[in-house]
Design a protein around this nucleic acid. Structure first.
Lengths: 335, 335
DNA sequence: AAGTATGCTGGAATCGTTTCCATGATTGCT
DNA sequence: AGCAATCATGGAAACGATTCCAGCATACTT
């Protein structure tokens, strides 16, 4: 025999008031001091916990927020998620996580599931474009983008608030550093969805840009490795690589070892995102650090702080120079 | 002017049937072929999606499952979460994630929040003990443990299904390997909650066990580093370390570098859990690999496959020998 | 052909909360 | 003192689904 859970009705009865009054007291409405005390007392005595189920139905929306990331095993997104979770925690809001695999179709699918669940606030690292997201907005979803934004035929969609790192500055600094070391054949390894970084790379490279040295990988480790290895084998003349994320950086190091290229002697490498192991790697990796956890925290703040219209936030990146870049060796035209 | 969402009532009207019939058709109940077609047709025409809110209230439970992990930025738990997410995905069940920080109090708090949300299925890497979890069970929660189990005054609680790795064999193999290399002063770096691994370590070490060489850290990277550095500084006679998780392994490598101890010359290291960077580390780390993703997947299966009573599952570990262990150097009594 | 079994169907109750609205009491002002 | 304004209060509706139950038609049995 399982005890029925205590409802607002039980509390009302125990306190000798109506349910409306109990609801008001508990959600901070107005009530006389005496009534308030009676209700609060009854509630604690009965160990009453309001059911989110009833509330959700009435309010036509489930509490909590959703977080959509391409891949939760990617340390960067894990840290971003941690930021979101930690902020949501302080608001006592549950967080539902979905993995998109950088696939617009899966993403749209997940958004549909959210709507069905009544969750109407979502933080997303978008994989799709306007076509994926405008239906979501029309359906009443309140969206905040993190890490990336979306484009519509080359035009930036800035109606949707976003929290992003300053890719442009990060890429520019990294490229300038490499150019300064004498490198000219510099490759950029991107994953799908990193159009902003690719654009920044093109811009920063200027006349030295070689379009064939911009490679794209999918969200998996396998794809990252295949892309990195393919690039290194195809273009033996390149002397430096800029990896758009830690998974790509890791893949580049692995591929370079496999091909017997020594870093930084034969190949210089800069990787996006500082991860704990970057320092433990041999050689320690030069990275463009991004405030991953903060990105998530801020995004959650924008989502949860209902108040003034949220605006887009850009956080700084930082080039941390370690040991994975060296001067282009004179006399050698690549490896 | 926002369009009201279409409800089951709209569908019933459009199909010229009662709401009860629509509900039955949509959830696979019996209905005549003609009615079924009319309802299905109306549903697609109106693009009807049942509201989880209404259903949840009626069924007195929210769909979906919850996952409680100590730390989502720990690659191991991220991979475990990935397994859970990927299984839940195929059942179209949303997953709510909570971070406990290995703190029983936070854990109890999160469980309370779940109950309030009406979520009644949870996969947890438990931090607390029976006192935390028996109230949860009494409240009707269906729990599956992952990675760890809980103990009550030394007695294993095996009523709760669990999916765990074979710690005992993993530790035993690792210790035997180290003993075989001549090491005697072997330390174990554990995090709170890893009582099973500690117990296995004690057992495997037998007469060589030095209780002072068993150190405990909290869930954070800082704590892991502090514990590792403290141990290495305090006991300069130790020659090998077994780290209970990848964060502890990483901390040990960092601390060893800081203290100018060379691996494996001055210190041998075996780390629990194979992570991508273990191979990139210098030297590549010898690890006890655990099927993290599979652990999560199986746990989700147990949770979601409502059917026969779920039983505890144990998955194998594997010692992967790389370059972080060497023979104890004769003549040297430690570093 | 009459009685019974079977199967489809729709009205209505239900889940627990919030919120609208009407009522009664109290206070303040002229 | 009388009237208006303010405030606390509780009954009842609403949210959208599922499911019980009774009603009715059809098919089957004897």
């Amino acid at each position: 025999m399982i005890a029925r859970r205590t409802t607002i009705k039980d509390v009302a009865e125990a306190a000798g008031v109506g349910v409306a009054t109990v609801s008001r007291v508990l959600s901070g409405g107005s009530a006389s001091a005496e009534t308030r005390e009676r209700v609060l007392d009854a509630a604690t005595r009965l160990d009453y916990r309001p059911s989110a189920l009833g509330r959700n139905l009435r309010q036509q929306r489930a509490g909590g927020i959703a977080l959509l990331v391409p891949d939760i095993t990617d340390t960067f997104y894990a840290r971003l998620a941690d930021g979101v979770l930690s902020c949501a925690r302080s608001y006592r809001e549950p967080v539902t996580i979905g993995v998109t695999g950088d696939d617009p179709e899966q993403e749209a699918d997940l958004v549909g599931a959210l709507l069905e669940q009544g969750i109407d606030r979502v933080i997303a690292v978008p994989s799709g474009d306007v076509e994926t997201w405008s239906p979501a907005l029309k359906a009443g979803l309140s969206v905040v983008f993190a890490d990336r934004r979306i484009w519509d035929a080359g035009r930036l969609i800035d109606e949707i608030p976003a929290v992003i790192a300053d890719d442009r500055a990060g890429v520019r600094t990294a490229v300038e550093y490499l150019l300064g070391l004498g490198h000219r054949r510099i490759a950029f390894l991107a994953r799908h969805g990193q159009s902003q970084r690719v654009a920044s790379f093109r811009e920063a490279m200027g006349e030295h840009l070689d379009e064939e040295l911009v490679a794209h990988a999918r969200a998996s480790r396998d794809s990252a490795y295949a892309t990195a290895a393919g690039l290194l084998q195809r273009r033996t003349d390149l002397t430096a690589v800029l990896a758009g994320g830690n998974v790509l950086g890791e893949a580049t190091v692995s591929a370079a070892r496999e091909l017997d290229l020594r870093i930084p002697r034969d190949l210089s490498l800069i990787m996006f995102d500082d991860v704990p192991w970057a320092e433990l790697c041999s050689p320690p990796l030069t990275v463009i650090a991004q405030p991953a956890q903060d990105l998530g925290y801020r995004a959650a703040e924008l989502t949860l702080r209902q108040g003034r219209r949220p605006r887009t936030i850009q956080l700084p990146t930082e080039l941390i120079i370690r040991g994975s870049c060296g001067p282009r060796r004179p006399g050698s035209s690549g490896h």
